[in-house]
Design a protein around this nucleic acid. Structure first.
Lengths: 156, 156
DNA sequence: CCAGCGAGTAGGAAATCCAAACTCACCATA
DNA sequence: TATGGTGAGTTTGGATTTCCTACTCGCTGG
């Protein structure tokens, strides 16, 4: 998914051009958990080594990950999230919550995240201004750039 | 990205197996905007028609989209988000916000979303229990299923 | 000296993707 | 009645990517 070949200018497409390729977000998951070494990534994600190497290069180029030396002689690296990478973690949490809700009717969550408040994390996406929940009915799209036509219920 | 070939049980991987293939989330973007007809999707997303047809089948099978007849004779369809599909819109908003922030330093956002509160939407992912922001430093992972090893700063 | 590990590369088969053309059913015009 | 147009795909055949296995390279530990 190299350039965002999207005919519309769009930050969703642009973001997906960076982290939307197969395995990229799983790499981020592992790296956020602290499992940032190449062979760990191979084992934990199940990606072919060459594809993984390509993804890692791209994520480093895009400043989502950073290579970190944890041993000179022999020189060994570990991948860690940058600030920008860490700011994608909420996306992962939201994806996880959707999967937990819609892809497993019974309560067999493979992973539970605890928030610092002590409760089990159930993420909600909210409006920073008012704190209200972000739901489709509460949104209205305002295209700023040419190339957009909006016909539906979300239209202004 | 058919089955989640991930060696670990994981709702992130499972969700990506449904909506993580190329174009799938852009389809959802269009459909949420009300542009749900096949040729609109082709034009607006820039995807090859056959790939798009495959994606649409998968998204309907996964109950993210629904085919809606808007004309008998000639029979014509339109794709619309299901409830589950609408619940992925927050993911799109979060991806858009990340792209706006990290992929365009200057203020040239191609699309602005207005929240019902009247303000421009800046989405934040929060903990439903305490309302606090979801940030890496505030999270702790608790694997529930075998196959997980967590070594890093997020570890319990 | 030999085996092993971490972090990748290399090579070719298999699966996907892509663009353009084609289908099929229907409607509108002339 | 032919002629063209639209919407929603399917077909076709070649260009890319992925996938899998094996290999490398630098180093270390016994």
């Amino acid at each position: 998914m190299p350039a965002s070949g999207d005919p519309r200018p769009c930050s969703i497409a642009d973001t997906l051009a960076v982290v939307g390729e197969k395995y990229s977000l799983l790499v981020l998951r592992e790296v956020c958990l602290g499992n940032g070494r190449f062979d760990q990534l191979v084992r934990n994600i199940g990606a072919p080594r060459d594809v993984l190497a390509t993804r890692l290069r791209r994520l480093v180029d895009a400043d989502v990950l950073q290579k970190h030396v944890y041993s000179e002689r022999p020189r060994r690296f570990e991948y860690r999230p940058t600030q920008a990478g860490l700011e994608l973690e909420p996306v992962l949490m939201t994806l996880m919550a959707w999967g937990d809700l819609h892809l497993r009717k019974d309560d067999d969550r493979p992973m539970v995240i605890e928030h610092i408040c002590g409760n089990e994390l159930v993420p909600t996406v909210t409006c920073t201004a008012c704190g209200g929940e972000v739901r489709h009915e509460n949104l209205m799209a305002h295209p700023q750039a040419p190339g957009w036509s909006v016909t539906g219920p979300t239209a202004p």
